[in-house]
């Protein structure tokens, strides 16, 4: 089956003119125009370029919503299997337009899209998580190589050939980690890397250190005697039987449990389902991880005002940071809405 490809280019590559024509609104032609003709010949019999959509760079930038909607409509009418935009090299406005239309088409028409840019094009940072952006040189002098790389990736995607890592396929990473098998085992790669590092030779780390967002702590509690305090835990303490089926590790959810009628956690009412530590003593007395008993005692003594009626709990082991961030934001919002002044977080 011959696959259908639509190309997106700007007014310049469509031969309509330079900056003086950058205001032209979107239009469509039922054929390959400009670089699309070369793409057609590179795709060979694998796919046919059924149309080209053209838009002025200024028009796209200045009428983002309308331009995007109109281009998606025009592209959709060709019923394509794949969109190729650009390549935009180091042209900023063109790069943003290419990235934006690719991301919109992939998002709404649910078809893959490919564009090409130079590493410093602002479109790379904005759109690399949402589309395939093939690495190109900084100007149209690199057109031949760029179209070759784009077409090669297009053929692989259209044929459903499993793709290698971004580095091997020549596109900017989309922010996704995927497992592959290397040529050599990890131990050998490690010793090789260390010897290169010691010799002052270049080496490539396999994972750049993530940068953690630092959240400034809230102001100290001014009036503890009247403060409402909540208990939140990543120690996996849940009502017996784990009613919400929170996973023992790699949790993707947390539980909210009413403790307003409880003074003490016991093996009869609560348990630890955490997969990352020795739970023997936590199960003997779940207060050891989620100290409800002491909190009730201090509440009665008037050390603080009130213990919040619910506890929030999850298992913090192997939990993806993205999930943990979401839990924190959701729990924080709810506590704030309910007028909680402070939180005791227990972990294990």
């Amino acid at each position: 089956m011959t696959r259908r490809v639509v190309c997106y280019i700007n007014q310049f590559f469509a031969g309509m003119g330079g900056e003086e024509q950058a205001h032209v609104p979107p239009s469509a032609r039922p054929e390959a125009v400009g670089p699309a003709m070369q793409i057609q010949s590179l795709l060979g019999e694998e796919a046919v370029v059924v149309g080209t959509v053209i838009c002025g760079d200024s028009y796209y930038g200045e009428h983002l919503e309308e331009a995007r909607a109109e281009c998606v409509r025009l592209i959709g009418e060709f019923k394509p299997d794949l969109l190729v935009a650009g390549p935009a090299f180091n042209a900023g406005r063109y790069g943003v337009a290419c990235g934006d239309i690719c991301s919109a088409v992939t998002g709404t028409l649910r078809i893959p899209s490919i564009t090409g840019m130079y590493k410093e094009n602002p479109g790379v940072e904005l759109y690399s998580p949402k589309t395939f952006i093939v690495k190109t040189s900084d100007s149209a002098r690199g057109m031949k190589d760029a179209l070759g790389a784009i077409s090669a990736l297009a053929v692989k995607i259209l044929k459903g050939t499993p793709l290698g890592a971004a580095e091997d396929e020549g596109y900017f990473p989309r922010g996704i980690r995927k497992n592959f098998f290397h040529e050599t085992n990890g131990a050998k790669r490690a010793v090789d890397m260390l010897l290169r590092k010691l010799a002052g030779e270049p080496f490539s780390t396999e994972y750049e250190m993530p940068v953690f967002r630092r959240i400034p702590p809230a102001e100290p509690v001014k009036d503890l005697k009247n403060a409402t305090i909540a208990l939140v835990s990543s120690g996996g303490i849940v009502p017996r039987g784990n009613p919400d089926h929170i996973r023992v590790s790699s949790a993707e959810s947390y539980g909210v449990y009413d403790i307003s009628r409880l003074d003490d956690l016991t093996p009869e009412n609560f348990e630890s389902i955490h997969g990352g530590y020795d739970r023997v003593w936590a199960n003997e007395d779940p207060d050891r991880v989620l100290p409800l008993d002491i909190m009730r005692e201090m509440e009665r003594e008037g050390v603080f005002g009130k213990l919040y009626d619910h506890v929030f709990t999850t298992t913090g082991t192997g939990t993806a940071v993205a999930h943990a961030e979401r839990f924190g934001q959701e729990i924080g919002e709810r506590l704030k809405k309910d007028g909680v002044d402070a939180v005791i977080l227990t972990s294990t």
Partner: peptide, 23 residues
């Protein structure tokens, strides 16, 4: 532990001194 979608950061802690990491 990059999540089932591979989109999360993979470590629970980080140090800038780790410049050579084998995954």
């Amino acid at each position: 532990a990059a999540g089932t979608d591979g989109k999360s950061q993979g470590l629970a802690d980080a140090a800038p001194e780790i410049t050579a990491f084998v995954s």
